[in-house]
Design a protein around this nucleic acid. Sequence first.
DNA 1: TGTATTATGTCAAAAGTTCTAACAAATTCG
DNA 2: CGAATTTGTTAGAACTTTTGACATAATACA
Lengths: 407, 407
Amino acid sequence: MRKINPDNFTVAKRGTSREINRQIALTLIRTHQPISRADLARLMETNRANVTLLVNEFLEENLVREGAQGTQKVRGRKPTFLYINSQRSTAVAIDVRASRTFMMITDSIGKQIGEIVSFPTKFDPQEFVASLGWQIRKALKENTGSMECSGIGIVIPGMLDRRSGVILHAPTLRWRNVNILSALNDEFAGTDVHIENSGKACALSQIWSTRNEVSANDIVFVSVSDGVGVGVVLNGELIRGKHNTAGEFGHVPLSIDGPQCACGANGCWEAYVSNLATLSRYFGRNMGGGQPKSIDAAEFTIEDLIARARQSDSRALAAIHSTARYLGMGLASIINAVDPTRVYIGGEITEAWDMIETQVREAIKERTLTSDLGEVTIRIVPASEHPRLRGAVALVTAPAFAAPKVA
Amino acid sequence: MRKINPDNFTVAKRGTSREINRQIALTLIRTHQPISRADLARLMETNRANVTLLVNEFLEENLVREGAQGTQKVRGRKPTFLYINSQRSTAVAIDVRASRTFMMITDSIGKQIGEIVSFPTKFDPQEFVASLGWQIRKALKENTGSMECSGIGIVIPGMLDRRSGVILHAPTLRWRNVNILSALNDEFAGTDVHIENSGKACALSQIWSTRNEVSANDIVFVSVSDGVGVGVVLNGELIRGKHNTAGEFGHVPLSIDGPQCACGANGCWEAYVSNLATLSRYFGRNMGGGQPKSIDAAEFTIEDLIARARQSDSRALAAIHSTARYLGMGLASIINAVDPTRVYIGGEITEAWDMIETQVREAIKERTLTSDLGEVTIRIVPASEHPRLRGAVALVTAPAFAAPKVA
DNA sequence: TGTATTATGTCAAAAGTTCTAACAAATTCG
DNA sequence: CGAATTTGTTAGAACTTTTGACATAATACA
């Protein structure tokens, strides 16, 4: 039961029904391809005539292409298969991190083209934009032949205002009120430039992934690395809140008298489970608690710690285990608050999942209100799946399949 | 950008556009009444012809009635005003609490009819249903003349499964897996019986209230009394989660090593700010921490404590102030997580709002991530507004105005 | 091999919307 | 009293989904 906002609604026009059915049909072709018109009609519980009309429109617009005829086991005319035309245009995905910036080119359905490249992140915003622009142009030239670039999706570890595109605060980059969007918009006039917070983008990556076993529409993505980023999707829609800061569960307290967090408050979840927190616990000292330092390759990393734990360094294992416990405690808060169908966890610590799963689950069960909540499905997202880059891709490719705003 | 769920979508049919516009028109009549067809057309940014067709349908169905002609300052034909026909049917609202159960009858638009009555809550579910049924029949007979009862909305301080209507766990009532819905459905065949958690219902009450200055569609309602109930509305829709337990922010920890909470875990927000927690702090002892006791009139209540604080009992004031601080700490977590446009607070403690506002706000600002978040609008909902009963009413009356499920 | 059967995809007309434009009704202004 | 102006209605145009019929294409079986 959704209330219609009397100050912001959308009345249905002559074309609204078609618009709705268009997006449904596109969604189903995307998730079920290859699929025939007849099957599409069955899925949509409508008639084949209607589907023909919709599909003809897609074919004219080059959104969909017809493929080989399928083989049927039963008698009857063979179906012609439909596919999303992924060769129509390309998307650029950018993942900005403290040390390096990563870039990937994909086709219009999000399939990777070429290799993922990376380059050092320039800390000066102007230099950054210049180097980024140069890298994008280079990558597009090398990878995309005649295809047009339909959009650029950029993912930033920080808070940003989505309308203006201003990065309000990105602690690890030490950026405050930085506007990289307008410069890029000028440089790449004609192609949309989207910008989004990393945690939110990670959540999008899972929602819009086609590889998903079951398509859950209510999920949480928790990304643990320098900080803790969280993205929450409810009802297929990323929750953004009034200032685009919704979903900041990283700063829910575990103990209001706990260690100081980068945000200024005390005892935030992040201050217990970030990579730095885990490392600090191992070394028994404060590794710059207040302001997280950028971790150079030369330094001792969380991966090193995990390696030591695997080589039966009992102190390393203990540090990781206590992180696991705190991780579960915080997850329980999110699970109690959101009651999602699935929780995704990403970040370096997940490489040790086999060592920590038990502790995490126990801690979750300790603090969740019902046993159902304690048994929520958890899926680990390894770094090899590049959730942030996939989220950046979704910023560009997903709108074509999204539900129209109605009522 | 909402993703269409490929496993659960609604295709647009011939009548879908009309259905959408119907609900928009009804919503606007409800929120702007009295309103003329011409004004409605302007608000909807459509033509008068379309509005005439919609309104004629409403008139036939007796959903809307025409009222007196309006007077215009300018020249031209006088408009005929439209109103929601509130005399069509009645709704029964029930608020079940540990000590007493409250009941209110309203017209079809939620305006109170007669007096609010209350009676002791029977702890045995069967006895409860019997007494409730009797009371409902009596109240309907006394108050509603010839009008039909269109539905019964019941609000329970506990978790429940919305599909089956089973009350899974209501700690203050000591109910587990109690089904009062099927018995009431049998007794009142023909009228819908809705059941909902109190915290969630309170949130609904604010969303569907017409007295609202500005209609916010993203709000949080925090209700502090025996426990802490929270309802979160995003995008005009109450978040329920997979098991209808979403929104349980009451058990977010302030300190994982803190006092034991009724839920079994340690250091939940509820364990710091519930009425019992505040009283315990005053008396410097544990008032049955684990399982909250029902508070008889004979006992010392939170209202008594507030009265003492007003009479400059410094220990009473201190207890209330520390509750205020904890209240703000927990609110900050919710605000960080949801980033709502408005936060409503209800419960006995709000009677002391003038004494605690400063402390609450300070604590919120300490733990919110941005200054915007720290300055979120907070509105106190006094007990006299009966948020739980109003929420129960919304369960019955709101569906007629809700957006149709589409895409 | 030939015919019956069956599934796919298309087409034209029916039914139900919104939208346009014209018009009747009602009121004020000069 | 007529011009101007606003409200509410009506008929038809434009655009949907839906229905039923039909051409197309393949398999099954006699």
